[in-house]
Amino acid sequence: MELNFGDELSQAAVVVFTTIVIILLICGIPSNTLFLWTLLKIKRLRIIHNAFVGNLAVSDFLITTYLLPFNLVSLLNKEAKIPDFLCQINGIFAHIVFSSSVISVSTIAVHRYFKICHYKLCLRIYTKTIACAVIASVWIIGILFAVPLIWMENSLIFDPTVQMCIFNRYVSQTYSIVYLFACLFTPVSVTMICYYKIYAYVIRHKRQLLTWNNGIGQTRFRNDVRSTKSTFVVFVVYLVLYSLFGVLATFFDKHSQVATEIHSTSIYMAYANSCVNAFIYGFMNKDVLKAYKEALRCRRSRKIKNINILTQDGTSTQPSIFQTKSSNIKETESPKCKTSVVQNPSQKPNSMITSI
């Protein structure tokens, strides 16, 4: 079954939306791939907060790499139509991914709140096991809300304006209200409350935090605030790009009441949200940008750094560079002296664990 909007997309609208989809694919796939690759490759980024951020990146990656190409193929060929069975699968898949995406934004905000406002409590609550359970719960909730669509008649229908199967939010008013409340309004409300409490806490304790004598504590707090700013911007961009879709879903009870171009614009704005998060993290957090550069390096530098060896008698020696042969490497070691390796003062220390 197809949706009836009265008019199909004009040729000019098709050209515009095709261009938009191509841009989203060019920007979205490499950026999300780089972001996930960076989280996996750079060890200092493997922390609990980044696990929640990475979960959101997985949703964005699936949207840009799987759903968007179907739109592009259909826009380039109006006569193309995917089989009904695949259309249903794509509709359910899109429903799960978009639901998990908005809930993931909420889990990031909740963790940020505990990390900044209740740091010691956060260390006890957010263990690796709890973090994995939360991430799994995000996807389980998305799947549970997608299961009824299998038995609801006309719940997933082909939308020619976006050339894909989408959730028919007008087929059941009860289900739509429950879904919007559980997977949209509640996560968004929780996220807004968390960021407001974080802002109030930082303003209220700003002078106290600046008087800390613990330099490590100050550095940790500054990193947490910087990463919170980037996740807050991600949330604001999410609200802006999903606002039109939310208005149409909430205040219009029939597709015929919405202009075709406006409906399509709301869908592609939602797609655009999945392509900008990796850029926001890199632009607002210099540590993330540095991690991007490290992840893109093909191999590590083999430059030999200067080291000093301190012996028991306090003397300092500068070792010579060993010349190695392909079949034999000779090493000398004195059993009478205890050695320790000290880095050259000019060498920069390893950077702290970074949260995105």
Score class of each variant (00 low, 15 high):
Leu123Met: 13
Ser100Arg: 04
Phe251Leu: 10
Arg44His: 05
Thr64Cys: 13
Ile198His: 01
Ser189Gln: 02
Gln11His: 10
Pro345Gly: 04
Val240Pro: 02
Thr231Phe: 03
Arg302Pro: 01
Val162Glu: 07
Arg204Gly: 09
His255Leu: 02
Pro349Lys: 11
Thr315Met: 12
Ile22Ser: 07
Ser301Asn: 15
Lys43Gln: 13
Trp37Asp: 10
Gly215Arg: 12
Tyr271Val: 11
Ile166Pro: 00
Ser137Tyr: 11
Thr219Ser: 13
Leu25Asn: 06
Gly215Ser: 09
Arg300Cys: 11
Lys338Leu: 11
Val342Pro: 00
Thr339His: 10
Ser340Trp: 04
Val240Asn: 01
Ser316Gly: 01
Thr311His: 08
Cys275Glu: 03
Ile29Leu: 11
Ala291Met: 03
Asn344Ala: 10
Ser10Gly: 15
Ser101Thr: 11
Leu241Cys: 11
Val138His: 01
Phe145Ile: 04
Gly246Ala: 12
His95Ala: 09
Met164Glu: 06
Phe35Gln: 10
Ser31Glu: 02
Asp7Lys: 15
Ala94His: 08
Val188Gln: 07
Pro160Cys: 07
Ser155Glu: 07
Val58Ala: 06
Val16Trp: 14
Ile353Gly: 02
Ser340Ala: 15
Leu75Met: 14
Thr211Ser: 13
Asn223Arg: 09
Leu67Arg: 07
Asn273Ser: 12
Ile89Cys: 14
Tyr113Asp: 01
Leu296Gly: 05
Ile203Val: 12
Met284Asn: 02
Ile329Phe: 08
Leu67Ser: 09
Thr260Gly: 03
Ser172Tyr: 08
Lys78His: 07
Thr219Ala: 10
Asn214Phe: 00
Val341Asn: 05
Leu184Thr: 15
Phe322Lys: 15
Lys325Ile: 05
Thr332Val: 14
Thr228His: 03
Ser264Cys: 12
Gly28Arg: 03
Ile26Trp: 07
Ser274Glu: 00
Gln218Asp: 02
Tyr292Glu: 00
Ser355His: 03
Tyr199Met: 08
Thr211Ala: 12
Phe251Asn: 04
Ser106Cys: 15
Trp37Met: 13
Phe5Pro: 00
Val21Cys: 08
Val258His: 01
Thr332Ile: 13
Ala259Val: 05
Ser334Gly: 02
Arg124Cys: 12
Val73Ser: 05
Ile116Glu: 00
Arg302Val: 07
Met164Gln: 09
Tyr242Lys: 01
Thr265Ile: 12
Asn306Ile: 11
Ile22Tyr: 04
Ala270Asp: 00
Ile307Trp: 02
Tyr196Glu: 03
Phe70Trp: 15
Pro160Gly: 10
Cys298Tyr: 09
Ser189Trp: 04
Ser104Val: 08
Asn213Lys: 08
Ile356Trp: 09
Ile304Tyr: 12
Val21Asp: 01
Ser176Phe: 11
Ile140Gln: 10
Thr260Asn: 04
Ala259Ile: 03
His263Cys: 01
Asn277Lys: 05
Ala259Phe: 02
Cys132Ile: 13
Ser274Cys: 13
Thr265Val: 07
Met284Phe: 15
Asn273Met: 12
Leu36Ser: 08
Cys27Lys: 07
Ser340Arg: 14
Ile198Ala: 06
Asn306Glu: 08
Gly246Met: 06
Phe17Ile: 13
Phe70Asn: 03
